[in-house]
Design a protein around this nucleic acid. Sequence first.
DNA 1: CCGTATCCATTCCGATACTG
DNA 2: CAGTATCGGAATGGATACGG
Lengths: 154, 154
Amino acid sequence: MVEDASPQGSECPVARTLESIGDRWSLMIIRDAFDGIRRFSEFQKSLGVAKNILASRLKTLVEVGVFDIRPASDGSAYKEYVLTEKGREIFPVVVSIRQWGERFLFKPQETRSVLLDNASGQPLMPLEVRSSNGQKLEPSDCHRMRLVNGVKDA
Amino acid sequence: MVEDASPQGSECPVARTLESIGDRWSLMIIRDAFDGIRRFSEFQKSLGVAKNILASRLKTLVEVGVFDIRPASDGSAYKEYVLTEKGREIFPVVVSIRQWGERFLFKPQETRSVLLDNASGQPLMPLEVRSSNGQKLEPSDCHRMRLVNGVKDA
DNA sequence: CCGTATCCATTCCGATACTG
DNA sequence: CAGTATCGGAATGGATACGG
């Protein structure tokens, strides 16, 4: 018997986010979308995922409002999956994941894909956690608090 | 037949990161660790996860170098799981996930947990993707590139 | 208290075949 | 091309019992 748990209703935003886009494929699909991929077959080719599960993931990502479906821009009869604003705002998540992986999961000369600034061709600045007045924060500089109806609930 | 795919050897840092900490529980465990949780039973209580799978996840997180095992600080016979530097550097990932969830997955007055700066008691600054010279970047301002032995490829 | 071992249910995933 | 339908296998998760 679990007393916790309504899975869709976690109070922690981290948990709730992972419930909606934390599965094995969604973030990879979104990563590809940031690369300009929009068509079913392009996602499929890039990810090497089975078509049925790609279809399933795209459907739920549309349902949760991360993608919109639009008619194809080239006039072909098919649809395109384009990120909504909600979807585009996942960018920092993907970038932070990428930066951690680059730093800790690759040997220096190992072949990898990198994300570069169009203007300069340079790598991006590492994402940093900062306070509201711009101070860099370590994990120990923060604490979690429960917010009930807008008021703190120690 | 898949020609892609050596799962541990993806060239994309996003993919490789998700392979190592992208399962359903690891990021939740790490989130709790940022809250100061170190003991098996505390993780278990906080997450409501079965003991066997918690044990399994902690073991692999130690293996990949995200946690260290240390003797308990209170002198009891048991161990503590503390984040390594590699583990602590996941902080921006957890924070970006949290911020996205807060913004898009909660109604304004809905009960949630928030992360506050110890010094000011204020919420954190939203993470932003920036270029090496500090310019804010949108997804379309970036492009992916393959890096082979340190040189650009295509 | 801190796990491990076992067993079972469920979910997820890939391959294939099929439809418009 | 863009999916849907179906099926079997693999991975994952939960409950429980047990041992150090």
